[in-house]
Simulated scan of single mutants.
Amino acid sequence: MDCLRLAEALLEARGRQEVFRRALAALEEAGVIRCGEAYWVGEGLSLFQMQACRTTCPLVAHSRTLAEEALRRGERVEEGPFVALPVRQGAKTLAVVVLSLKEGQKPPEALPALLLLALKRPGLELAGRLLTAQEEERRRVGRELHDGVGSLLTAALLTLKVAEKRPEKLPEARKRVAEALEEVRRLSRELRIPLLDDLGLKEALARYLETYAKNGLKVEAHLEVPPLPKEKEVALFRVVQEALTNVLRHAKAQRVRVRLWREGDRLFGVVEDDGVGFDPEKTPASVGLLGMQERVQSLGGSFLVHAAPGQGTRVEFGVPL
């Protein structure tokens, strides 16, 4: 693999999680690995997962054990196609990456050194947290304004133009403006999620799903949610919220199923509908899907969409706890 390309990918990273995500993505794009995971070494040599694979990945069953062994030894550990590489600064291990190598491939020799350089950039973590939080919220508000308020106001404007010659259309124009105003109010309410502050993610989602079910859809929910840091609760609430919004707008579904569950040191989620589906190969990723992916990846997790025409859509995600 061209290490210069890997170094360039890491240069733009704005936080620890993005360093690992960019490194693993570059290795996958270069055909070196099938997938990979990353762990940060905390106090007491505890491992905190920073980047996780999907539920179906064979690496999941071996990853933490290999990472712990590499941390204990302070050197590379291999098991079949899997290899764990410690990222060390002197005698201290800062992180461990665990890779699932493609047949005949080896990780770049310079990978640990490049990761160390990226991780030790001054101000990396603080700048990353601030920028990520700001940009995620701006993108979300931008999507809501464009998709919701923007379309309603456009419809109102077109109706007003017609009403210039046909005054009987004025009530319809008033209705459109009222809908846009209600959408602005809804967006204002959703900029903050008071239920999360008071009740936590599980109860906040349960209450939200009750409201969502009033749209005529049958909702099946199975929520097993352990206590989480507030930033994770907010991000995961937004992911589920966006997935359900897409179902309402595009799926023409009759039933939607939402499931969150803990498995080991990860939280997995699924939002699945029985709607019209789509062809991922022919349909460009929407702003909403990209936003969900960005939120999940910012937590060190993985995001996957299964869809086919006439067969509904299934959104899967998994994040480290």
Score class of each variant (00 low, 15 high):
313 T>S: 10
246 N>Y: 02
97 V>L: 12
288 G>N: 09
196 L>D: 02
252 K>R: 15
116 L>C: 04
225 V>E: 00
257 R>T: 14
103 E>S: 10
140 R>Q: 11
84 A>R: 03
101 L>Q: 05
244 L>T: 03
295 R>P: 00
170 L>C: 01
200 G>P: 04
286 S>M: 10
197 D>K: 14
74 G>F: 07
137 E>H: 09
253 A>F: 13
243 A>H: 06
17 Q>Y: 02
6 L>R: 05
59 L>G: 00
7 A>G: 03
136 E>F: 00
160 L>V: 09
227 P>R: 03
51 Q>M: 09
125 E>K: 08
95 A>S: 15
279 D>S: 13
168 E>A: 14
104 G>S: 08
54 R>C: 14
278 F>M: 10
6 L>D: 08
239 V>R: 00
125 E>Y: 00
49 Q>M: 08
215 N>D: 04
317 F>H: 06
13 A>Q: 11
66 L>I: 11
87 V>N: 00
284 P>W: 04
218 K>L: 11
68 E>R: 14
204 A>I: 01
301 G>W: 00
320 P>R: 10
219 V>I: 05
305 V>H: 04
55 T>K: 14
115 L>C: 09
245 T>F: 06
18 E>R: 08
228 L>T: 08
240 V>Q: 02
232 K>N: 00
95 A>W: 05
274 D>M: 05
152 L>K: 08
291 G>K: 01
94 L>M: 12
129 R>F: 01
256 V>K: 09
41 V>D: 02
134 Q>F: 11
169 K>P: 01
78 E>K: 15
149 V>F: 01
267 L>G: 04
271 V>M: 04
175 K>A: 13
259 R>P: 01
280 P>R: 01
28 E>S: 12
263 E>N: 06
122 P>K: 00
72 R>T: 07
103 E>G: 05
130 L>F: 14
7 A>H: 06
258 V>P: 03
137 E>G: 01
117 L>Y: 10
155 A>E: 12
84 A>E: 06
269 G>M: 10
49 Q>N: 06
